[in-house]
Simulated assay, not measured.
Amino acid sequence: MPTQQDDNGLLAVDIGGTSVKYGYWNQQLENSGSFKTPKTWAEMHDKLLSLPSQITQPIRGVAISLPGSVDIKKGQISGTTAVPYLNGFAIRKELSDDFQLPVTIQNDANCAGLAETWIGNAKDVSSVALLIIGTGIGGSIIQDGQLLTGHDHFMGEFGYSILNGQNKTLSDLGSPVQMAKKYTRISESLAPVDAPQIFEKAKQGDKLAQNCINDMVHWLSLEVYNLITSFNPDRLLIGGGISIRDDFLEMIRNRVGTLLKQKGATVTTDIDRCRFCNASNLIGAVAQFLSEYPTLLAIK
């Protein structure tokens, strides 16, 4: 379990496809902020290096959450990612040299898992699977405190699961963003309609909204069922903005419970939401840093 002494802090950064979040960690997250994801590495590089000047406290290291397949030993990412220019070079070494500080990197969904097992809704169990639902869908698996990443650092990319006969993936079928685009298209709405609006329309009796939500929940429930029966974790946590909805979580629980009974799968995995939402990747990046440098922050 990571530990940290007082009066020592980290710069935590979460790089995403649309925005970059950052904050200062010293027992808790402080001085949080964000900026729009730059279009080039040169712009990103300059933005990142300017962050310490915006944080007045001493910084002893930099903990970064990234999209893509992250190789923490090589210090780089590869494969499909929301920020393509981050791929294929030693990003950790470059930033460590420029910051003149230790730098760690980890996949964003893995960071969410680390945050939950450290101080979140999985801190009391031995095994947990996370399903993070957003524009795309990812996740992570942690067993006995160890993050499982796979041979190609691709474990947890559940959005690539193919769930129907048309080769559509879970990210195609289960993303709230894709669900909203579907509703907007079919309804011929003049303006884009987002997922929260569709849930509200469904409550008001809009049949198309109800059908779109039901379809999304159907595919997500199949994936949750597959994860539970494949990995049999103590707990499965659902993250992403949609997870804060009690009605959504209850629909998933009910449908997965029905599937388990229908198929005779006698498992008792808890299904819950993540404790952390927007801050999960930042907190998990800190957990990754503390696991790699367990004594650094104790040095005065």
Rank of each mutant, 00 (worst) to 15 (best):
L130E: 11
T80K: 14
G33Y: 05
I213R: 04
I55W: 01
N107I: 01
T184N: 02
L49V: 00
L296H: 09
K47F: 02
P38W: 10
E116F: 08
Q106V: 10
Y160C: 07
I59Q: 02
Q5F: 11
I238W: 02
T104K: 05
P67Q: 13
A287C: 11
S187R: 03
P192I: 08
W219C: 03
G174V: 04
T104P: 15
P2Q: 12
V128P: 09
S96R: 12
W219A: 03
Q106L: 11
T184W: 06
G23Q: 02
N214E: 02
E188Q: 15
I252N: 08
G88P: 00
I299T: 11
A90F: 09
K47S: 14
G165S: 13
R92L: 00
A191Q: 11
P102Y: 07
K263I: 06
V193M: 09
G139E: 13
K168H: 13
I133D: 03
P52V: 12
L10C: 06
S34G: 13
T258G: 14
Q288A: 13
A122P: 04
L148C: 14
G79C: 15
C212G: 13
Q100V: 13
G136D: 08
Y85T: 00
N281M: 06
D14R: 04
S96H: 05
L48A: 05
R60A: 12
R60W: 03
K207I: 15
L190H: 01
I72F: 05
K300F: 05
I137V: 07
L290C: 00
M216Y: 04
I133S: 09
T40H: 00
L86W: 00
K21P: 04
S127N: 00
I133A: 01
N121S: 12
H218R: 15
W25Y: 10
I105H: 00
T117F: 10
Y85M: 10
L297V: 00
I228G: 11
L66V: 04
K263R: 12
H151N: 13
I186D: 14
V83L: 09
L297G: 02
A298V: 01
S175L: 07
P2L: 06
Q57I: 04
N232E: 07
G61L: 09
I15A: 02
I119D: 03
L10I: 09
Y183I: 06
G9E: 01
R245K: 08
Q54L: 15
G174M: 05
L208P: 07
G16K: 11
G68S: 11
T18P: 06
K203I: 12
S126F: 14
V177R: 08
I238G: 09
A129E: 04
G17W: 13
Q204C: 10
I55E: 01
A90P: 10
A82P: 14
E157M: 01
